[in-house]
Write a protein that binds this DNA or RNA. Structure first.
Lengths: 195, 195
DNA sequence: GTCTATAGGAAGATAGAC
DNA sequence: GTCTATCTTCCTATAGAC
């Protein structure tokens, strides 16, 4: 039945994605991916004739669907801007396992080569994320250009705190960043209060 | 003469480091490193008997020396806190080529494995950077814990804006972040003004 | 659709001449 | 100290049985 195949593909992409996030794209050998998937190499090639590159692309697409459903959707949904941003931070916290998990968009963009097959997809996802945040911030009354700056800063804080968390060996920076994110994005008194 | 050897080692580490930053640690094959260095593989192994891992470690140490000299030094030097932070942003802008160059500390910490030979060095450098920023912010009158939070946010903004810049394909986020960094770290009215 | 077995090549690393 | 030539291992990818 078609449904069974779809479900298995979801689980498969989850496991492959986890491997990419753990060891990076270059570090993810077919042997590692095969073990994580619970399928032999030849079976992986049956599912992904394009090999490792296709696995990376489909994992990226799956991440895009997750982003749309769990982040972009709620951000454009019901509730006040602050409620929606707070709901988003909960999704991000669980997605990145509280900061233990690296971001695929960071890992896959490391080889920044102009010819990278991932470049377009990564660009699109960052743009969509920044765009959705811009809209929420603008709803709070900020001019669009100021809202866009805040949105970019918010995404940079998320990505950077994940990097810093790995570097310092503690998830605290990521968790603090998520907690502060609603104020970072929406408040104009955040600085005075935290000082 | 000893001096000549030292100079050549500096240039060598620069070229190897540029390769690591361009394509990542895993992506940097001995062939690529050899071409970048202008030395055949066997000659690289003569200089670095520990192979690629030793190259990574020594490049990291060289980066640490650069950090100490160009960032930590000025941050603890003459002038007002704002002047020192601004001087630091100039160094970072040129070091990362305005945002075109990725950060070694991000790329080398991708395989976050507990056993990574780079983990300790990376941790040390992030800690030193955050510590120096904390001191400068504290000098401006903030409590140490608040200063530490701001310092961590500053480092996260730098790292995250580099990631975002690569993802969006424009250096604008990084340049904007550097321009805003003195206020991000030191001002308590930044939010109200930029809104 | 999954497997065993293997091809073909690139990876990291070394031996030994100069 | 640098080179050419080579070794071994691991990689991506495929062939073909079941």
């Amino acid at each position: 039945m078609a449904r069974k195949v779809l479900i298995e593909m979801d689980a498969l992409l989850d496991r492959l994605g986890a491997t990419f996030r753990d060891v990076g794209y270059d570090g993810a050998s077919l042997t590692l991916l095969s073990e994580a998937a619970g399928l032999k190499k030849a079976s992986l090639y049956h599912r992904f004739p394009g090999g490792k590159e296709q696995m990376g692309l489909e994992v990226l697409q799956e991440t895009g669907r997750w982003l749309t459903q769990h982040v972009l959707g709620p951000l454009g949904g019901e509730g006040t801007p602050r409620e929606r941003v707070t709901a988003m931070t909960r999704e991000l916290r669980s997605f990145y396992q509280g900061g233990k998990q690296a971001c695929l968009l960071n890992l896959l963009s490391s080889p920044i080569s102009e010819a990278s097959p991932f470049k377009a997809a990564i660009h699109q996802m960052f743009e969509a994320f920044v765009g959705a945040l811009t809209n929420v911030v603008a709803e709070e009354g900020y001019a669009v250009s100021a809202a866009r700056d805040r949105a970019e800063r918010g995404v940079a804080l998320i990505q950077g705190s994940l990097v810093l968390a790995r570097g310092l060996g503690t998830t605290a920076p990521f968790r603090k960043t998520l907690a502060a994110l609603p104020d970072e994005l929406l408040a104009d008194t955040q600085r005075a209060r935290s000082a």
